[in-house]
Amino acid sequence: MLLLFTGLLVYATIHLPARGDPEAPMHRKENVVGDPVAGAYFIGNAYRDAATPNMVTVILADYRSVDTLGEVIVVFTAGVCCLLILRRRMYD
């Protein structure tokens, strides 16, 4: 099963664009159907949109702030989970 998994992944990767190729679909300005691609847009517009030079920060806190909110909720969930699991049980 592990071999199957490996084979599948290797098969997929050799068809991937070469690593570091700036023309890879993820890095281009427009995708094949002509829509803007997020990565290039962030590089070009992050400073204009949020006046912060660090693009990662801008994405984290602004463009995709919901992911970050989700991240906070994950941590909160983990905390509540530990509370639920580790509190001494009645029969202990």
């Binding site: 068809h15 890879a24 679909p25 995708n31 997020a38």
Partner: peptide, 30 residues
Amino acid sequence: FIAMETGSFNMGDVARVVPALGDSAPATVG
């Protein structure tokens, strides 16, 4: 894999790009 082939994490974008890619091994494996 899908993002690396299509360049987007948005489902609507992916749905538009995938047919244009034709037969894409990474997207399929994804």
